[in-house]
Design a protein around this nucleic acid. Structure first.
Length: 473
RNA sequence: GGUCCCAUCGUCUAGAGGCCUAGGACGUAGCCCUCUCAAGGCUAAGACACGGGUUCGAAUCCCGUUGGGACCGCCA
């Protein structure tokens, strides 16, 4: 690519950053990084009634979490109204746009009628040739679309898409309150910001011929277009709130690693042979619009979960230790001001990371290592903590009391010795101890668990269990 | 209703006319490993929507049908 690539992500702050938006942002970012171009963030907030500061913040927060750093921006369309105004004036003067005095109510009524009669819904152009303003009405400005010939959209993903110009209606570019509208602002901004490639969702494909005519009317070169396939919910309709968690931040809160999330997103509509897991560097190196598919993809939470477990399993425990802290606090495993020994926490995470699919799970699994009083799972307690196993528990407790070098290999020796002494299987010994120490019938390897829980807590828990069984008997 | 887009296992996908008896991944089932639970390994079931062409040869190219989706706002 000879010219320097400039792409943008242009969300409207009328909602959270959702999966589809995040994927669009990601592909733009990847494209920019691949070609060593610029990635620009632009907030499309011309609809002042629906845009909020809060959504701008969550979008930026979401982008930050995903590691999609911008080279410019965020620009805001509401800061650029004077620019749009000058272009509107130009179009009006040149007769390429005109005032429309139809009221929203009238337009809505005509739309309903067209719908009822199963006719195409299109503005009829009645204000096109008005000579005089209509009194007591504040007009909107419409762009005059050509009504003959055809428009070809050359799309990097779809190929050539042909539209009949008769289908195009004169869209409103300035509302009667004076604010400019989307289809107009995108064009002005994309030109003004030197955007070379417009990479956006499929839902904009039908807008593209209209925008092309605005480019032409303004006398500008048309950028390259690439329309990404949609991300659908399990029912194969456009992903929306009723499909459950769709905002990027909700995945952060559910304990997903951003790299895993990105890896999942990138594989929706893009592939590089059979490879499933990519580093950020690999993504930047391999990414190409040529490998983007044309068909919509259904969001599959199970695969996301699998990827997350893979990323957790392969992350350094030190790093996981840092991230998991907020989840430990939230899960009330530790107090807000509590600190944990980092090396110790890493060891604990070592044992848990290949059995945790999310950070929420990891934090929860960490609980028995950290807290003083553990809870016992009722089923596990009934099954393993009873009189029959009392000799085992007492034997382990006594051996542990005399064990000074409280490390896994030594702990294992204790078990081996006792297994021989009682002429039983390791499982028969390990399970009661496991329940006594962790409260559950499932845990990481018992020797490691005992070492990490530590001699002090281990003995206390064993004593408590032995005492309880004793009283019951 | 109009316009446009799309079509390979349940899902994400590989596939650029012969490498296809259609490959991988998630999920599902079974087995192995094993102190439990995982992780890991192995195995299995599972798809070219349909109908016509073109071609010696089609998942792949063309046409049609069907199905799905998006858009048709003084939203973006």
């Amino acid at each position: 690519m000879s010219e320097k690539v400039r792409v943008r992500f242009a969300p409207s702050p009328t909602g959270h950053l959702h999966l589809g938006g995040a994927r669009t942002a990601l592909f733009n970012w990847l494209f920019a990084r691949h070609y060593k171009g610029s990635f620009i963030l632009r907030i499309e907030d011309t609809d002042r009634t629906r845009s909020t500061e809060e959504f701008i913040e969550t979008i930026i927060e979401g982008m930050k979490w995903l590691g999609l750093d911008g080279d410019e921006g965020p620009y805001r369309q509401t800061d650029r109204f004077s620019i749009y105004k000058s272009y509107t004036d130009k179009l009006l003067q040149e007769g390429k746009a005109y005032y429309c005095y139809c009221s929203p109510e009238e337009l809505e009524k005509r739309r309903q009628e067209a719908l009822a009669q199963a006719k195409p819904q299109k503005y009829d152009g009645r204000c096109r040739n008005l000579r005089e303003p209509i009194a007591d009405r504040i007009p909107a400005v419409r762009f005059m679309m050509p009504q003959e010939g055809e428009t070809v959209v050359v799309d990097l993903i779809r190929g050539k898409v042909v539209f009949d110009n008769v289908q195009l209606d004169d869209l409103i570019i300035v509302r009667s309150d004076g604010t400019p509208t989307y289809n107009f602002c995108v064009v002005v901004d994309d030109v003004d910001m030197g955007i070379t490639h417009v990479i956006r969702g499929d839902d904009h494909l039908n807008n593209t011929p209209k925008q092309i005519h605005i480019y032409k009317a303004l006398g500008y070169r048309i950028p390259a277009f690439a329309h990404l396939p949609m991300i659908l919910g399990p029912d194969k309709t456009r992903l929306s709130k009723r499909h459950g968690a769709t905002s990027v931040t909700s995945y952060k809160e559910m304990g997903y690693l951003s790299d895993a999330f990105v890896n999942y997103l990138v594989r929706l509509g893009w592939a590089h042979g059979d490879q499933e897991i990519f580093t950020r560097e690999e993504l930047i190196e391999y990414f190409s619009l040529e490998d983007v598919g044309k068909s919509a993809a259904v969001f599959n939470p199970e695969k996301l979960l699998w990827l997350n477990s893979q990323y957790i399993k392969n992350s350094p425990s030190e790093k996981l230790g840092e991230i998991v802290m907020s989840f430990l606090i939230r899960g009330k495993v530790i107090k807000e001001d509590q600190t944990l020994d980092k090396a110790w926490l890493s060891k604990a995470i070592d044992t848990l990371k290949e059995r945790s699919k999310t950070l929420v799970e990891l934090a929860d699994s960490l609980r028995f290592y950290i807290v003083d009083d553990i809870e016992y799972d009722e089923k596990a307690r009934l099954k393993f903590l009873h009189g029959k196993n009392l000799p085992y528990l007492i034997g382990v407790k006594e051996a542990f009391t005399n064990l000074d070098n409280f490390i896994a290999p030594e702990i294992e020796k204790v078990f081996v010795t006792l297994v021989e002494k009682h002429n039983t299987k390791l499982g028969n010994l390990a399970q009661p101890v496991r329940v006594a120490i962790t409260g559950k019938a499932e845990s990481p390897g018992i020797f490691e668990v005992v070492e990490i829980v530590g001699k002090d807590k281990t003995l206390k828990r064993l004593e408590k269990v032995i005492k309880t069984i004793g009283t019951q008997a």
